[in-house]
Amino acid sequence: MSDLLQQIAAAADHIKKLWSETPQVGIILGSGLGNLASEIKDSIEIPYEEIPHFPVASVEGHKGRLILGKMNGRPVVAMAGRFHYYEGYSMLQVTFPVRVMKALGVHTLLLSNAAGGMNAAFQVGDLMIIRDHINLQPEHPLRGANIAELGPRFPDMSEPYSKALIVKAKGIAAANNIKVHTGVYVGVQGPTFETRSEYKYMHTIGGDAVGMSTVPEVIVGIHSGLQVFAMSVITDIGIRDEENVITHEEVLEAANAAEPKLTLIFRELISVL
């Protein structure tokens, strides 16, 4: 057995000893979006540092704990705080929790993130359902020898985000009078926010929003055979006035303001999976 398979098994076994249910849905929460975890009932929380081989979150707005419980009656496992390549982790570490979720029994992966908007129709606080992505991160999470037990050497990425779940999410949003966009997410390394020219470039190549996460986890989710759905909260506008400076504090503020809408969509989506 490879080292990675052993590490996945060790982490999953530790979690199973603390929580006997089999989660159906895995949830990864982005910057300022961790309060969805309060919707999880009969929950237990496991700090990342207690889970074998888990990295530890270090970014403001990411709490660093695994939450297991039920949402709308379905057993779920949620990450309150994710790992980023820019923190110095390898892509293997960034995506390790997705592997563990799969080992626990998860079949559907839901992700959220804070993103910069590049579409002129977007406003701060808007929600965007990700229908596709462009990967500009410098390292690929599947680079290296492929482990057949985890997935195929060349996974198909023609539908990384489930069209069926997108349709369901749009219906939930419409029924609750929540405006949502659909668009293309550009994944970059960070940690700097983009220059004005970089925003223009990424919009020119087809991007509607840009962020520093999500893409690696989605790739590994697809490699693992999971059904994937993701949403961005537009926390700043990249195509902007010359004097509009972006700060992490403003990103968190915008994410917190939009969180109730995103939480409602995720909660209702879980109920109809």
Rank of each mutant, 00 (worst) to 15 (best):
A175F: 04
Q227C: 13
M118I: 04
I134N: 06
P97G: 00
E149Y: 03
H223Q: 03
I134D: 00
I172F: 00
V233M: 05
T204Y: 12
K102S: 01
S90I: 06
G187E: 07
S213E: 07
P155L: 05
Q123L: 01
G105F: 04
H140E: 11
A115I: 10
V180F: 08
Q93A: 15
F229H: 13
D236A: 01
N119G: 09
M231R: 10
T192G: 15
A145C: 07
R143D: 01
F154W: 05
Q123K: 12
N177V: 07
G125S: 03
G117E: 00
V94F: 01
A173K: 08
G187D: 07
G190T: 08
A148Y: 13
Y161F: 14
R131K: 14
R153N: 07
Q123T: 07
K200T: 03
P141M: 02
V184I: 15
I222L: 13
F229N: 06
V233R: 07
Q189F: 07
G190W: 08
V100S: 03
M128C: 04
L111R: 00
F193G: 05
G116V: 06
D126H: 03
V215L: 13
D156H: 07
G225A: 03
I219Y: 09
K163L: 12
P152A: 09
S213W: 03
P138D: 09
L226K: 03
D126E: 02
H133A: 08
K170L: 10
V210R: 14
S232H: 09
I166M: 13
M231S: 09
S162N: 14
A173N: 00
N119L: 14
V106T: 04
I222W: 11
A164K: 15
T214N: 09
D126C: 14
L150E: 09
T108L: 10
L165H: 08
T204C: 03
D132L: 09
H140K: 08
H181E: 05
I219R: 14
Q189E: 12
L127A: 06
N119Y: 12
G105A: 08
M128E: 11
K168P: 07
E194H: 08
R153T: 09
G187W: 11
A169P: 13
L226F: 09
V218D: 01
Q227I: 15
Y201W: 13
Q189D: 12
Q93V: 06
I129G: 00
F193Y: 15
T95Y: 10
V124W: 01
I166N: 12
L111N: 01
V218M: 14
A175H: 12
L92S: 15
A120N: 12
A114D: 06
Y199F: 15
P97Q: 03
A148I: 15
N119P: 10
E198A: 00
F154N: 04
H107N: 13
A145N: 12
E149L: 03
H133N: 10
G117K: 02
S197N: 12
V100T: 05
V218T: 12
Y185S: 13
V220G: 02
S224P: 07
G116C: 11
M101C: 09
V184H: 04
H203I: 01
T204Q: 11
I205P: 01
N146I: 03
L109R: 06
G187I: 04
K102W: 02
M212C: 14
